[in-house]
Design a protein around this nucleic acid. Structure first.
Lengths: 154, 154
DNA sequence: CTGCCTGCAAACTCTTTGCACGAAT
DNA sequence: ATTCGTGCAAAGAGTTTGCAGGCAG
């Protein structure tokens, strides 16, 4: 999905929910989709303010759940105190796992379609219906261990 | 591993690390192992105080990492603001996935040995060495959806 | 116009930390 | 004795919320 198309989808989602397409919400959208990488709420605030300096922290925190619910953003919790978000360009149907490098502080995403099967199998045994599944691998960087620097770092 | 054996292991771990086997640390241990279920830091504090009412919140928070490092406890982060812990009776070698029921608020643990394989496979492609992996399934309770109550709730 | 949205700042939750006292070795 | 551990309370990080004014529909 292209960025303009996603922007239109966001607009439509807002209208459909009886919400208003304010400048701030659209600036936050643009900030989120300008970088194709993971970001925190704070980073998103900084960037959204470069587009519209009236955007406040509160509005960012209020907009993030809306964008997550509309599956324009995916929430990525790596258990580090703060949550990460990332544009969900594919449309949100793909199952992905995160590989978090403890040296680079980088988050890689890997397709992991078997997760869905696993969730269903395990849940049905417990009398549950799966909603979502998260697989996360924490790892150390080989290059960092050998040379003391990580090529991906920065 | 029996509870007395685990208690002895904890004592030995403390001594070996040059730490002291204080009454508070042992009360926290006893509280953690008295219930065979997940608990939060706050719940552990309550329960430890029933054993030794001099235990403070700070000491609980300072003791939890020690017990986690000694692999007597396992940390379970379901991305809900607060962390959960659970006695690691088997010894910590087993790979487990968590199934979290969104209706019951209960955490089930399921053996998932393939996770280790997955972590290694994916990490090596990225030039990383896996340290740990977490798989978590969020699900709704079928019984709750049909009857409005969940038998496991409470 | 009406009512949702906003920024601000205060509140909140969970966890960590500085300090002076207290206890284990 | 010495040194580490403790409770207390304050601080900290990240996020949420109450309120009075502002802007979209």
């Amino acid at each position: 999905m292209s960025i303009p198309a996603a922007r239109e989808k966001f607009r439509r989602f807002l209208v459909q929910k009886g919400l208003r397409a304010t400048n701030q919400r659209l600036a936050i959208f643009d900030a989120a989709f300008a970088k194709n990488d993971h970001f925190t709420a704070e980073q998103l605030l900084d960037f959204a303010r470069q587009i519209d300096d009236s955007v406040s922290r509160a509005t960012v925190y209020r907009t993030l759940p809306i964008m997550t619910e509309s599956s324009l953003l995916r929430e990525v919790d790596i258990g580090s105190g703060e949550k990460f978000y990332r544009p969900n360009v594919e449309g949100g149907r793909t199952q992905v796992a995160q590989v978090v490098c403890l040296d680079c502080d980088k988050i890689f995403e890997i397709s992991a379609p078997f997760m869905e099967w696993y969730g269903s199998t395990v849940s049905s045994k417990l009398g549950l219906t799966p909603v979502s599944q998260r697989l996360q691998v924490s790892a150390h960087c080989d290059a960092f261990r050998q040379t003391g620097t990580c090529p991906r770092r920065g």
